Simulated scan of single mutants.
Amino acid sequence: MNSVAQNPEPTPELVVQVNGGCEKRSLLMTTGMLALSFIPTSSALCKEIPENYMEFVDKQDGYSYVYPSDWKEFDFTAHHSAFKDRYLQLQNVRLSFIPTDKNDIHDLDPMENVVQDLVNKLYAVPNQATFIKGIQERSVDGKNYYTFEYNLTSPNFSVTRFTIIAIANGKYYTLTVSANDRKWRRARNKLKVVVDSFKVFEIYSLLYWN
């Protein structure tokens, strides 16, 4: 994941807001070069966050979201950041992205087709039944997002999720929050805060050479 460096190699600056304050981690500095990434401070680094939540901001990859303050970070295969409930393993948030030549989600197929394909062909395994509960489009600071709520039912268990997608910086971002279906009614509002908080922002880099 890109949240914190796991080795002594320098990494681009990452800013994590904790209890209303901004903590900076690592600034990329190599011999003869300084790389700086700029994002609007007011919108992505030092804004007020909901009570009992913490904010994760990744300046290198251009996204942010909040998560419950009692959750812990963990590694989720093929994802760039992830946090989970300490006791309920199926309650988690994780984010991934892949390269794309698209500039906006409106460059994809119609919203309903995109969501149907993602749920039925990517998120569900062959023995799971799918049910899409709702789809919503929103726009924040000129960026467009599709959010959808859906259920995946297997013979032994059922899980319900929110997923939100967006495109920026040549990346197709996907953030998902989930819970066991039996816990969904109780957890839904808390998880909705997480998915609604997700934002992408443009990365601008300046390279200075000696």
Rank of each mutant, 00 (worst) to 15 (best):
Y173V: 03
F198M: 04
F83W: 01
N151P: 06
E13H: 07
T31W: 08
S81G: 11
F148S: 02
K24D: 13
N52R: 12
A187Q: 02
F201W: 07
F56L: 10
H80S: 09
Q91F: 04
S81I: 06
K24N: 11
D85M: 01
H80G: 08
V114A: 02
T176N: 03
V177C: 01
S43G: 10
N156H: 14
L175V: 10
L95M: 11
E48L: 14
M111R: 08
D109K: 14
T100Q: 00
P99T: 00
V140A: 09
N120E: 14
I132K: 03
T147G: 00
G20Y: 02
Y146W: 09
S69I: 03
S154I: 04
I98T: 14
L95F: 07
Y87D: 15
Q6H: 10
E149W: 00
F157D: 06
E51R: 15
M1P: 13
K59M: 07
S43Q: 10
P110D: 08
S96H: 11
H79C: 14
P10N: 02
I165Y: 00
K47H: 15
D85K: 02
F76T: 09
I203S: 00
R94F: 15
V4A: 12
S96A: 08
F198N: 01
N180Y: 05
G170T: 02
N144K: 08
T163N: 05
A179M: 01
T163C: 05
Y150I: 01
A44T: 14
I164C: 14
C46H: 04
S26N: 12
S81L: 08
V195N: 02
A44I: 10
I165A: 03
P12C: 03
N2R: 09
P99E: 07
F131R: 06
G21P: 06
K190S: 13
D109Q: 15
D58M: 01
V66G: 01
A129K: 11
D101G: 09
N127K: 15
F83L: 03
M54D: 06
D117M: 12
F83H: 06
R25V: 15
Q89W: 13
Q60D: 12
F97W: 07
V66W: 00
V57Y: 03
Y150E: 05
S64D: 08
Y65K: 03
F157C: 00
T30K: 14
Q116S: 11
G62A: 01
S64W: 05
V57I: 06
E73F: 10
T11Y: 12
K192E: 09
Y146F: 09
S139Q: 12
A124H: 04
L118D: 06
F76D: 12
G20I: 05
T160S: 04
P50F: 07
N113E: 15
R182V: 04
Q17H: 08
N113Y: 10
P68R: 04
I165M: 02
T174V: 14
R138I: 12
A187D: 01
